[in-house]
Amino acid sequence: MKVTIQTKNDIVYITIQGSIDSNTAGELQSRIMEELTSCNRVIMDLTAVVFLSSAGLRVLLMIYRQLNAKGGKVLLVNVSEEICDIMSMTGFINFFELYGSIEEAEKQFIQA
């Protein structure tokens, strides 16, 4: 797994490559949680994520909960059909807004 985190115009952009599973979930969570202390708006680009395990889905939900508690929001971008299907069957999808591109997600934040 490779993670890049950038902050631009008060939005944290997180780009992840590879698989999020029990081996990588802990590291990912602690890196992202650090960023969240100073920011309310997060866009996660999952274009290059090939697999999300149970542990991985739980990291996403932790981020959602963290942001939700302080009135913030996380938007997911480019979730593959397979991951989307898994998220739907396991109920995780109900917590997230999904967008086809970073631009669409940004628009959502600007409108809000």
């Binding site: 149970s54 396991t90 995780f92």
Partner: peptide, 10 residues
């Protein structure tokens, strides 16, 4: 994927 528990609960 080892997610039967979550699917059933959902």
């Amino acid at each position: 994927y080892g997610m039967a528990v979550d699917e059933l609960k959902t």
